[in-house]
Nucleic acid binder design. Structure first.
Length: 308
DNA sequence: TGAACTGGTTATTGAGGTCA
DNA sequence: TGACCTCAATAACCAGTTCA
């Protein structure tokens, strides 16, 4: 049986256990037989079902390989997954990856119907090394190339955390050169070297607190957060309502004429860029300084289309 | 062709239930 | 309450099958 076969089984076992509190062997077997038929696996043996022994082995492998704690309870007679919130988030990501893997494998003859994004975030090959350095408090060195600079520079930093934003990964680290905590995009990072020197993790550093009032990964130096009131047209408002711009988002008005929200944020470059991307679907109500910045940017854009 | 996977068998283990 | 029983999970072992 191909590796695709047993990875698909792992996916189905996890999906079933995640969707139901307690699941017996029989329920798992029945579910998997139905699902494997549905998946139309190109493996005749899979379509014939799987044995209880294989299912036992799969559960054992999932525990060992993925560190997912599948437990068994005798009183309600069933398997279940117990996870913390952080573990659950990792689990969801893994399930997404599994789903994508399965879908793409099933779709090998469906090329005309599936169109993948050709742009790919780079730098994820360093994720494991960076995690190792963060966990073991190892100082790292790498070459970093800013988009707005021609030359690369060698950075020596104390890595604190990894953060994802808009399908890109960023390293939060203290630059040894000036002592500031900065974000480094992994796709601009190369020649990673994990040194043997270690550092002490600052007890007062907390990623969530640091970026609590940030839209993206740009952290303001000393700027205080402020209330930002935005007015969207009702159509755009539906998107903003279902996918909030920030965790601080509060809906002020939601009617046929307007969708108005309030955010508690620091005004950073990435926030301004985001607001500009909404074009004429958005009007900044407060603060006036931000409204002026957006107005100036739109005026400048407009001027580019006027005849000289 | 060797390695890996799978299914069947069987012994062990442990939780839950029963009973004296 | 402790001894015993039952039942189902677990894991080791082996042989057949499939894969790379």
């Amino acid at each position: 049986m191909s590796k695709r076969g047993y990875i698909s089984r792992y996916l189905l076992i996890l999906r079933r256990l995640k969707s139901k509190s307690y699941t017996t062997y029989e329920e798992l077997l029945s579910y998997m037989e139905n699902q494997l038929d549905y998946l139309q696996m190109q493996d005749d043996r899979l379509s014939m079902g799987i044995s209880k022994r294989t299912l036992q082995r799969d559960i054992h492998d999932i525990r060992n390989l993925f560190g997912i704690d599948i437990e068994y309870s005798k009183s309600p007679k069933g398997y279940f997954i117990q996870q913390t919130e952080a573990e659950n988030m990792n689990f969801q990501r893994m399930m997404e990856a599994f789903d994508m893997f399965t879908s793409l494998n099933l779709a090998h003859d469906l090329k005309p119907y599936i169109h993948l994004e050709t742009r790919r975030p780079q730098g994820t090959e360093n994720l494991y090394g960076l995690l190792h350095a963060i966990k073991n408090r190892c100082v790292i060195r790498f070459t970093y190339h800013k988009f707005w600079e021609d030359d690369s520079s060698i950075r020596t930093v104390e890595p604190y955390a990894l953060k994802e934003f808009r399908n890109r990964w960023y390293l939060m680290a203290k630059d040894k050169k000036d002592g500031y905590v900065k974000s480094f995009a992994l796709d601009r990072l190369s020649l990673l070297e994990i040194t043997i020197s270690t550092f002490t993790y600052p007890p007062d550093f907390n990623v969530d607190n640091t970026y609590r009032y940030c839209f993206g990964i740009i952290s303001p130096s000393d700027e205080e957060p402020q209330d930002i009131v935005l007015s969207f047209d009702p159509f755009q408002g539906k998107y903003i309502n279902t996918l909030p711009l920030h965790s601080s988002q509060q809906v002020l008005i939601n009617n046929d004429d307007e969708f108005r929200i309030k955010l508690r944020l620091c005004v950073t470059y990435d926030l301004v860029m985001e607001l500009l991307s909404f074009g004429d679907n958005l009007k900044v109500i407060e603060p006036q300084s931000l409204a002026d910045d957006i107005k100036t940017a739109h005026k400048k854009a407009y001027s580019q289309y006027q005849k000289a």
